[in-house]
């Protein structure tokens, strides 16, 4: 199978709003066949006022049917335009981008997935791949309130705990509150979410001797490692620029938490 990155036209299959400002879009693209959990695609708005591809993580794949699902939050002009796409519309996408979660390393381990807010979508594909590989999977999903988007999708592949900031349902608090209150056992964590959550997970995993893989985000331009816009500080010298700056779009977005200074 050809693994080269491409820019191509994809067809929108469906679109629906899962929660206020959270949209769920399935697209038809051959990229689905080579897309894995933690990777992302760049979606180009049509409006020529906006030029750059929007990095959006892969929520789920259907490799046989060549279908790919993205769940995204509307933040600016580009994502608001995407939210208006209907079945049959076409969209330009760039992919498949980034490295993805190391699913093979989870073999035989108690792996706990943690998703916070718009970091929850990639956990669906990750849970699916881990389950397919024979792992039993726990997901802790952290929401703002009781709009528990994707919870039922996660439950197809994993045991799910819910944390909410406002305590309206599940455990009041964040994903780590659940670890304590429910006494969840983990020897590996895979996580995606806002930076304060990822920092807390890094600290928690270090204190408890747990391996943690975290997915980072940053403002991106090219998405393919050329512009050096989306870097993060790394513990060791990076292989590209030799200055302790990894490129999130190509060296990541998934990193061993111990390798990055966040």
């Amino acid at each position: 199978m050809e693994n080269k990155k491409k820019k191509e036209t994809a067809r929108v299959l469906s679109q629906k709003e899962l929660a206020p400002g959270i949209y769920d879009m399935w697209i038809e693209t051959e990229m689905a066949k080579r897309a894995f959990a933690g990777q992302f695609i760049g979606v180009y708005p049509r409006d020529k006022e906006t030029l750059l591809p929007r990095p959006i993580s892969i929520c789920e794949t259907d490799r046989e049917e060549g279908k790919l699902r993205i769940v995204y939050r509307t933040a600016g002009k580009g994502t608001k335009e995407f939210a208006g796409y209907q079945a049959g519309d076409e969209t330009e996408i760039l992919g498949v981008l980034g490295n993805g979660f190391p699913v093979n390393e989870a073999k035989g381990k108690h792996v706990v997935l943690m998703g916070g807010g718009i970091g929850i979508p990639p956990m669906v594909e990750l849970a699916r791949e881990l389950k397919e590989a024979g792992n039993s999977v726990i997901v802790i999903a952290g929401y703002r309130d009781d709009k528990l988007f994707l919870k039922e999708d996660l439950e197809k592949y994993a045991g799910v705990y819910v944390a909410t900031e406002d305590g309206s349902t599940g455990v009041m608090g964040n994903v780590l509150t659940v670890m304590e209150e429910k006494n969840v056992q983990a020897d590996m964590i895979m996580a995606c979410g806002p930076m304060p959550m990822l920092r807390a997970i890094k600290k928690y995993s270090r204190e408890n001797g747990i391996k943690a893989y975290i997915s980072l985000e940053e403002r991106m331009a090219c998405g393919v490692g050329a512009c050096l816009g989306c870097v993060c500080r790394t513990k060791d010298i990076d292989h590209h620029s030799h200055v302790n700056n990894a490129r999130i779009c190509t060296d990541g977005p998934v990193f061993d938490a111990e390798d990055v200074e966040i």
């Binding site: 940053e218 403002r219 050096l228 989306c230 620029s241 200055v243």
Partner: peptide
């Protein structure tokens, strides 16, 4: 050269 802090773009 390490370059500037992020956001860079």
């Amino acid at each position: 050269w390490p370059g500037n802090p992020t956001p860079r773009v």
